[in-house]
Design a protein around this nucleic acid. Structure first.
Lengths: 210, 210, 210, 210
DNA sequence: GATGAATGAGGCTTCATTCAT
DNA sequence: TATGAATGAAGCCTCATTCAT
């Protein structure tokens, strides 16, 4: 599990500050984290943060956008492959969960401080966050169109449920209310997909014609 | 849709302050909301807030606990009825969504400032929040035991997925990324249950024997 | 050692409040002591304090003046007796030290919050406090006039030194930097008088004629 | 008489703040003095006080310790010289009184807000304050051992009486109940020593053998 | 007399941000 | 680039006091 700080290859101070911010934000939370905490973590003077970023907010914005854009690209790329929808969803869940596995601090910051903090940063990035929902909804919609998914539920709701399940699981790991580890990570991917795609009912009511 | 402020029947200043806080927190967010905003909204003097509550935090704590305890009781009560698990889940989703329908500000505050704000108040109330998950997991577990639910997924994961889906939908309404209205509320209840219980797959893989 | 609270004979609420204030002020200090602390200690509602006293200040003023006036009377009375100056000083030191012995909380409040707090209450009562110095100075002055005390030092200075010594000793007891007990109390009286009257020098330089 | 503010030679803002605090504390008293008063007096921004000091308290602590440590060193140094005890006491009284002469505001703050304010700052610095008493008591004790001082009184009491006399005199100057001026300063030194060492009695009772 | 709800002024402290060097 | 001294707005909370009952 590579720590955020280790990602800084050389003397790129901007990168060092970003990586330090991940640790600082994850440790103290964005609000409680002072700019000087970031600078201390990065071993630079705190004025330097303002050399590279307009504000403390911009540091978090940058962190979020860097990662979220990767997520969007990955989802799009997954969707480009000729896979069954269920496998596409599994691939998406895998990517997100593996992101947490590889850099839990960064995912903690993104989820806790942005994605789930709709009143502060989430507000700013609402549109960006929705893009992910919509890409997922697209996958569902196309699967419904080709008959591999049932049409009982709108793609939008299906996407919300899918993403909501992932976020709840990540939150459980982040705040240690759910056991985590290699086995749990892979199990979670399977369970989330199984719940959303397979459903809980033992005897499913016959599918209504749409 | 009854606003929080209107609920105060008489001259109970404590209640008035709590109701005013709902409006104030919902409007500006907990952090951005000053104690004087609450007092102004309640039409009482600044200091009176501190006569009834030790701190601004305690106001939110009180608001959350009042409502969350009702939720816990309702879930327990629902579970007490001899209903199919699917209907129990529908009843729970109904209660939560109707809570939003009847007092959107209060639910907004609880979800945005507590339930989804794991870094601040959520942390404090983590145990309380988990109680709800566990009650839901119990329902799932018992349904798996009696064969009405499949056992592909652990009750814990099922509960997370179920609650996660509800929370995402509420968040969508709260931040206006999802259309809301009477029809949408009832539809959402059905969709959430259908997604979690029915699953998305048109042709479900045969259930593994437990 | 009679505690302040026990002095309240009957249901005299005013007296109960004053006695409670002694305990409260002694325990928390005047500034840190809230009006409600006094009321709690007296087992009355705190509004009642304002029925009997105009302000929190007036409570302390009352406490101080009650006792200080007794001191002034006692000094005057002692001075009225046909005693050697040295014995008069011993009687004064005795009265003050016994006051502490009988009600340490009250003396603590008077010394810590008034007499030694020249920037707050001492300022208000400066004139009253000086009266004591002047009565003592009078005793010294008369003794110098009749030849029983030397005239090397002005009566004013002698009085300051005498009272200053007493206050330092009381302060030592109050803040537990000096051992206290029955033996120490009587010893202190003797030592203070011996220091001021006898002097420390083994071989005193011959007295200069005035 | 150099005012505290004038002592700041250059642009050392920390020093300027400390010197300004002396003036501000002396003028309004510690409690009534706002941090902004200090900043205004120092002509710096509000927040700079917090750049150099953790709190308003720390400003006073610093002021006290700076000066009191000098006092302790001076007493120790005086005691190091081969002087008669009486002259050592005179030197100590001289140093303290001259401290007041050279910077009355600083001494006012130290005495009124720390040394005589045993309920607030004095409490914190009790041990430090006692160190001075003990150094003085040492001088007395050694003089008693070599026979130059009588042993009627314990060194501890003698030290309390000596320091108490000085403090009373300074308090008299600080609150203008005692005339002050060059002549008075020198006279006070002599009078205090004369009172404590020479004693007031014209005919001293014969010294008891120890 | 007695209660305690209601009032509201006042100040310490934090910390993001700027800027001279 | 890099530093960290300097700025100052903003808000929580305390608590003496008032007053209706």
């Amino acid at each position: 599990m590579a720590s955020s700080a280790q990602r800084a290859g050389g003397a790129d101070k901007r990168r060092m500050i970003l990586d330090a911010a991940v640790v600082a934000f994850a440790t103290r939370g964005f609000h409680a984290c002072r700019v000087s905490d970031i600078a201390d973590q990065a071993n630079v003077a705190y004025g330097l943060v303002y050399h590279y970023f307009r504000s403390k907010d911009e540091v978090l914005d940058t962190l979020f956008l860097e990662r979220w854009n990767v997520l969007l690209e990955v989802i799009a790329e997954i969707d480009g492959h000729p896979l069954p929808a269920r496998e596409k969803l599994h691939a998406i869940a895998s990517f997100i969960i593996d992101s947490y596995r590889h850099d839990p601090d960064l995912m903690k910051v993104i989820i806790v401080e942005v994605t789930r903090a709709a009143n502060s940063f989430g507000r700013t990035h609402l549109a960006k966050i929705r893009e992910a929902y919509e890409l997922i909804a697209d996958i569902v919609g196309k699967a419904q169109a080709d008959g591999s998914f049932r049409s009982e539920v709108t793609p939008t709701f299906a996407a919300l449920a899918f993403y909501g399940a992932i976020e709840q699981v990540l939150t459980g790991w982040i705040f240690d209310t759910l056991p985590q580890g290699e086995a749990e990570f892979d199990q979670a991917k399977a369970f989330i997909v199984e719940t959303i795609c397979g459903g809980l009912d033992a005897n499913r009511p016959s599918t209504r014609p749409v």
